[in-house]
Nucleic acid binder design. Structure first.
Lengths: 107, 107
DNA sequence: ATCTTTTATCGCTGAATGCCGATGAACCAG
DNA sequence: CTGGTTCATCGGCATTCAGCGATAAAAGAT
């Protein structure tokens, strides 16, 4: 399990630390089929260029991946990275963050 | 279980989306005794005013709480909020984020 | 009352961010 | 080849952020 570096973690957090980008993640999560920039844009009250920039931030943070499909670019979440972040978060503060089954801390 | 609003979630993420603030959280997590601004400052290569500002961001995000102790202000993590965030994260993307025991999604 | 310690806040600067419209590249359809 | 679609990128603008030193407030010590 590739341990997430601190800067990496901060990058992920910062990428998700914007309501619009959270929305984009949600949109991508809900879509069964791959969805392109235009689809995302139509779900948001923002210009295409703005959405594209937000997607780029998510790409750079490794939260999303792109693959070309004809004239359009399709995006989907990177489940591996999400899981990676999840476990990084769980181990962050000596298990202070877990709700159920509080992992016994070994001093 | 108080459902975390989207903006709240984004705020928390943004607050944690900075390496220095992550460090501060770590420092607070490791200290058994409450620790004050000065203690944190001595562990970081930053001016006291800068550290104070970062702490304020964490305070505003509800990740940290303050209580006065003589001439100094002591800080500690808010475990409740951390747990809250943990479960909010778990439920965010249809369980895509969980590593172990992928929660069965109910359509 | 005076001094010291600790901290929050102010004012400032440079850098980064968020947003937009416009433009050009890449690709498909006629 | 021409034209339409989709998208990333550029330039520009206003706002926010990150960092600092200086300062004032609050509390303890003398």
């Amino acid at each position: 399990m590739n341990q997430m570096l601190d800067d990496d973690l901060a990058n992920v957090m910062r990428a998700l630390g914007h309501p619009v980008r959270l929305s984009i993640m949600r949109i991508l999560a809900e879509q069964k089929t791959d969805c392109c920039c235009m689809d995302v844009t139509q779900s948001l009250p923002l210009a295409q260029s703005t959405v594209s920039q937000h997607i780029k931030v998510l790409l750079d943070a490794g939260l999303v991946e792109r693959h070309a499909k004809g004239t359009r670019n399709c995006y989907k979440l990177r489940a591996d990275r999400l899981a990676e972040f999840g476990s990084a978060w769980s181990g962050l503060f000596n298990g202070l963050t877990t709700t159920e089954s509080p992992v016994k801390e070994l001093a």
